[in-house]
Amino acid sequence: MLNYTIKRIALAFLILIVVMLGMFGMVFLVPGDPASVALGPRASPELKALLIERMGLDQPLLTQIIKFFRNAATGDLGIDVWSKRPVLDVIMEVFPNTLLLGLVSIGWALIAGIGLGCVAVVYRGTYLDRVLGVLSVSMIAVPSFVIALYSLLIFSVWLGWLPAIGSGEAGDFWSQLRAIILPAFAIGITWVGYLSRLVRASMLELIDAEHIRTARAYGLPERVVVLRYALRVAIIPTIAIIAVGLGGILSSAIFVESVFSRPGIGTLMTSAVQKRNYPVVMGTVLFMTAFYLLVVTLADILIARLDPRVRDVLRG
């Protein structure tokens, strides 16, 4: 187990290093000098000079790479060329918003998805089960930002029930709650589809599972059979899909946050790309990649704790 944990963490770091090298190298792979590439053709000479100095672009390549890694390791992701503030500060200012949005989205999706999955299992093989199946696939298929636009039109513009923009007044719980409903709805709906299908499939598999039959055949009470024997097996794929789903939620958040002009990683990133604010783009990508790797690695280790079969293979 410990062996597996160390290997898994080492792999995460290795991947992060490859990603950093990729991000670093990207600017150099494109023809033209890095500062112009990073800032765009319309940037003023002063801005360019500032960037060259900040990023140490006038130094040898190897020095730059070492400096880049050393800085990143100490949390220095560079300086926002527009606001002149450290990139990490800019990110940390909006990251909690996106994290909250992601958690609320996956939270309601879990409740609804598990509920629908259970309904499908209870009514398996019936017309209702088939309708739910088609509904789940449709929920997975529809782009979240279209849901966001439609719900914005209906609930904010036409009905006026919920705010159309922003994340609510700071410190006002109800205002923040009202502001998060529509974005969380738009992001979560895809996951309702995924989770209901997953729950249905894994529960059906368990109903027929031989080892559940064994537990019953040896007279274990239903409570022990369900809580100790069934749930332990059923929970594993759910953890896996939620961790991987975080990546999906991030990409939905980019679009949905823009639709609702909600401050967060998505809106930060979009405006940085539009303004070609390369330090912010690069810093955000690194930050989010590290965050994503952290969650996936933790989930993998948790899964390996719960499922001994995974431990034997590093990339199960």
């Binding site: 990207m26 940085a272 690069m282 990508v285």
Partner: peptide, 20 residues
């Protein structure tokens, strides 16, 4: 593995920043 474990959209946006 490195590429697959990137949040796809993040990487896409970085490339768009560079290439326009």
């Amino acid at each position: 593995d490195a590429f697959s474990s990137l949040p796809m959209i993040m990487f896409a946006l970085a490339v768009i920043t560079v290439l326009g």
